[in-house]
Structure formats: C-alpha cells, structure tokens
C-alpha cells in the first residue's frame, strides 16, 4: 500500500476548511501549520485573479527528512506515510533544513519537529484525514496509489496535468496537483512584497535553539 494525496486546484476555492480541520484534529499550536493554503494574486487590476494552493508534507518516496534524521524520529510506516515520533526527536532541525518544501516546523510547545502525517492515527482506524473530510468541494483526494481502482489512481489516469512540487529534487512526492501552474507550485514564480500579505504581523511563538 502506498497512500497518496491529490489536490484538484480547479475545485479548491481557498476556504481554508482543510487548514482549520488539521489544526483542530492535530492540536497544531499557534503560529505553526501542518497544512496551509497559500494565496497568490496574479495579474494587474482589473485583470486579477487569486490562486489557492494547499501545501502539506508530500510524503516523499525518497524523503530527505527521513534520511537526515539522526535518530529515526522521522520514519516510514507500512502504508508509505512518512511519520514522526516526537518522543524520539532531539530537535536538531536537520529535517527542517532538508525538506525542500518547508513542510516541517518545530513545535513551540514540545520543542520537537512536527509535520503533516496524513493523519496516520485516523488512517489506522480506517478514517479519512481530517482535511479530506472538511473540504466542501472534495478537492482533496486521498487513497492508495498502488491500487489502480482507487479514486486517486483513477484521477491520475484521467488527467493529463498531474504535477508534483519541485520534481527536480528527486524526492518523488506522493502528493499531486491537478490544474496547477508554476505560480502554484514554484516559490520563485511569485514575489513576496512587504505589505501585500493579508496577515502582516504574524507573531511566532519563541522556540528553543538559536535562530539568528
């Protein structure tokens, strides 16, 4: 079994339902996110549009975070999920430096690394991840990539524009996007302009270690 995710960006309307559901389900502390929906505004007024991209851990087949973790706190489980054992983590931030997608954060409460686990605990009880359940337009499709009859496999077969983030990194993500442009997937394809963010003053909770 190889679990994977696909987000159909044609359907996503940026409501952030998945983001909130994830926060609640996994008790993600303030100022940290396992899943977040990125907004990028494209074009010049009046020809503007807003794009929405849910970003989470890609559960890479060749995961740099798993490789660099000195204590195997990050590890694969049988269904292909890259899981994390926060009791084992020493907080070296190696995984934060290795993940090319910025998917890992240091939890300010436990001082350990954390990230999206595809809700491994729910999956173990045959439930869908919280974000899948919360999405009002069923833009998040979750299932077994090794089963050709699963929803996700059929979606991949039926669509031509199936993409992953940063394929050049050789991580082989198990997280796909349909209907994405470079603006959605490539951080260098958009600018971050001071004062243009909808949240301008984000307070990060203090962390251990030294961040200067």
């Amino acid at each position: 079994m190889q679990l994977g995710f696909l987000v159909d960006l044609h359907l996503c309307m940026g409501c952030k339902g998945c983001e909130i559901a994830c926060k609640v389900e996994n008790e993600v502390p303030l100022s940290t996110w396992r899943l977040r929906v990125k907004y990028v505004d494209v074009g010049a007024f009046p020809e503007t549009k807003r794009t929405f991209t849910p970003l989470r851990c890609n559960h890479c087949e060749n995961a740099p975070c798993e490789r660099i973790c000195p204590v195997s706190a990050l590890h694969y489980i049988d269904n292909g999920i890259v899981n994390i054992d926060s009791e084992r983590c020493i907080g070296c931030a190696g995984c934060v430096m290795a993940c090319p997608y910025g998917a890992i954060y240091i939890d300010p409460e436990t001082q350990t690394a954390d990230k999206c686990t595809y809700c491994a605990h729910r999956v173990a009880s045959s439930m869908m991840p919280a974000c899948v359940v919360a999405c009002p337009v069923e833009a998040n499709i979750f299932g077994d990539l090794e089963d050709p009859t699963s929803n996700i496999s059929m979606y991949i077969q039926d669509h031509r524009d199936v993409q992953v983030r940063k394929p050049e990194k050789g991580t082989n993500p198990h997280h796909f996007y349909v209907g994405a442009s470079q603006v959605n997937l490539n951080p260098l394809a958009s600018e971050r302009v001071e004062g243009f963010s909808l949240f301008n003053k984000i307070t990060h909770l203090p962390l251990g270690g030294h961040h200067e």
């Binding site: 977040r36 907004y39 505004d41 494209v42 010049a44 910025g102 394809a189 971050r192 990060h204």
Partner: peptide, 28 residues
Amino acid sequence: MIHESIAATQAVVTLDVPLPDIFWGWFV
C-alpha cells in the same frame, strides 16, 4: 527562467506563512 515570468504574471503572494527564516544560526 520561471522568475522572469513574474513581469508578465505580476504574481504576488498574499497569504502564506513560511517557516521563520533562520534555523541554523550562529551556534552552528
């Protein structure tokens, strides 16, 4: 070069909270 397309798309991030920047600082 994808960065060069910004002039055409005028793409600007309006909502995203990336990781606080420096994780390995002067201690490292």
